[in-house]
């Protein structure tokens, strides 16, 4: 129905279309109209042709609109007695005499990730955002990982420049839990 209306509006605008017979008008209405183009969009009609509207300033429903707007910045987590998901806020920042520090991400998460390569054949645990004595942290984490490996040696790599430690194998959960325990 709407497409026929638009076509008729187009016809009004041009003299050429007015000469069309009724038959041809029927044919025209079957033709596809590309609404996305500004050329085929209906021209602005007088105000009376549009449905009646009511313009409301300070509407009581505005609170529902505000609820739909996303937050501009990432909110800070609220302090709660317990966090059922296992997430913990960072507490180590206020501790004195820290040899090293692992910063949280912008989303307040512990920066431990799993990198998989060779179609999942090689799994590497990556710890990022390390500041301070990275070698000390590597020594401590090595003990944790080797315990998880039942005492077997583990391969690791330290990148002092970018503040990253890589461990061969998937030890994300073990390392994340350890860092959370330490307050990072």
């Amino acid at each position: 129905m709407a497409s026929i209306k638009n076509l008729l509006q187009l016809c009004k605008g041009t003299q050429y279309f007015l000469q069309f017979s009724n038959n041809q008008k029927c044919l025209l209405s079957l033709a596809a109209v590309r609404q996305s183009s500004y050329l085929s969009s209906p021209p602005v009609a007088p105000r009376e042709e549009y449905p009646e509207v009511e313009i409301v300033q300070n509407a009581p429903e505005w609170k529902y609109v505000e609820r739909l707007m996303p937050q501009k910045i990432i909110p800070k987590p609220i302090e709660k007695p317990e966090y059922p998901s296992g997430w913990k806020p960072q507490t180590a920042a206020s501790l004195p005499d820290l040899k090293y520090f692992v910063a949280r991400t912008k989303n307040h998460m512990v920066p431990v990730y799993l990198h998989t390569t060779f179609r999942g054949q090689r799994r590497i645990t990556v710890i990022r955002r390390i500041q301070g004595d990275i070698w000390e942290l590597e020594r401590e984490l090595r003990v944790v990982v080797e315990k998880a490996r039942n005492g077997k040696l583990c391969a690791s790599r330290v990148n002092e420049m970018s503040g990253q430690i890589h461990f061969h194998g998937d030890y994300v959960d073990v390392i994340r839990e350890y860092l959370k325990e330490k307050g990072f």
Partner: peptide, 11 residues
């Protein structure tokens, strides 16, 4: 402008 344009009847 923080306004809501309400249609009195839908098209």
């Amino acid at each position: 402008d923080k306004l809501i344009i309400k249609s009195k009847s839908l098209p």
